[in-house]
């Protein structure tokens, strides 16, 4: 587009003149058509792709991302493992609110740096305060050192609900729960209506307000179709329990980085797993249990 739009939100006089003269003549239309990635436009829904189509789609994406970021990309579509249902545990008495997990997640999962997207919100609450509605909590605390006396911290990301409100409301089926319990989004199928964001009780879904900006040297090139591959503007994204790692047996990035070991991850169907031990021996609660979303994210202490 030749006429670069004003970055300012205000509609000024020049804007009006421009609009009234050239606007109708198709200035906008031209811009619109140029902005569409036609290859992706005709791509099928992930679940409807056959093996051949999936293979060619992944190759196409790898090529596209490699060209864009100047580095070799791997875009996988690793299938869920048999007999796994992922669960997550977080030790509230350990968490010190250092936000290491937030930034490890951003790096691992290629979240946009500008405008900023964080999949994890670490809420700080005063001890003894009412916190059920989280209104007295904040995620903007910024002391020199953490933990602060008299506060506790609660990181919140996607709770991977069994009864996911977000999946229920999506008009196009662009988000769904995988057999291993991970709620995923097909970024090339999402229409950006943000109904899922209204439905999510945990603020876990995030919208790409602009074309995501990720420095070329920081991009993670090991990606999954349903996970951390670069997203386009105008679609919703969310935590996937690091699907590109966990489906290969690795721990999620947030669990690996946590300096206090507050983050636990494992297979809920495996009686020997850390998660099962935790559920059987610790005092466990789930966020907003009254909504019956049945999260697979357990807070314990």
């Amino acid at each position: 587009m030749k006429n670069k739009p004003d970055n300012k939100k205000q509609m000024n006089r020049r804007g009006f003149m421009k609009a009234a003269t050239a606007g109708m003549a198709g200035l906008a239309t031209q811009g619109c058509v140029n902005n569409i990635n036609w290859d992706r436009f005709f791509q099928s829904h992930f679940k409807e792709m056959d093996k051949e189509e999936l293979k060619s789609t992944l190759a196409k994406l790898e090529k596209e991302y490699s060209a864009k970021y100047g580095r070799e990309f791997v875009v996988k579509a690793t299938a869920p493992m048999e007999g796994t249902l992922f669960g997550y545990g977080l030790d509230l008495s350990r968490c010190i609110g250092c936000r290491r997990c937030v930034y490890a997640c951003v790096g691992e999962n290629n979240q946009s740096r500008d405008p900023q997207i964080h999949w994890i919100s670490v809420m700080r609450t005063k001890m003894g305060d009412k916190w059920a509605d989280l209104e007295n909590s904040t995620r903007y605390y910024d002391p020199a050192l953490v933990p602060e006396e008299g506060y506790f911290y609660m990181p919140i990301g996607c709770q991977m609900c069994e009864q996911s409100a977000c999946v229920k409301v999506c008009p196009t089926g662009a988000t769904w729960k995988e057999p291993d319990g991970i709620v995923v989004v097909d970024y090339d199928w999402c229409i950006g209506c943000r109904y899922c964001m209204a439905a999510c009780p945990y603020g876990a879904r995030h919208f790409n307000l602009a074309e995501p900006d990720i420095p070329k040297d920081e991009i993670n090139t090991n990606t999954h179709y349903l996970g951390n591959r670069p997203r386009p503007k105008g679609v919703v994204e969310k935590c996937t329990f690091c699907i590109q790692r966990t489906r290969e047996g690795k721990y999620p990035a947030c669990a690996e980085i946590c300096p206090v070991g507050a983050r636990k991850f494992g297979n809920l169907l495996d009686p020997e797993s850390e998660m099962r031990y935790l559920l059987e021996h610790k005092r466990v609660f789930r966020l907003k249990e009254d909504l019956n979303t049945q999260p697979k994210f357990y807070y314990f202490f």
Partner: peptide
Amino acid sequence: CHNPHNPKFQKLEPKPAPIPPSKLALRKKD
């Protein structure tokens, strides 16, 4: 993780706070 001579976990410097929605705008111009 614990210093055996002073095992209590030492305080850390937190990573930067997120940008609040009211201040969220494109920093870089296209």
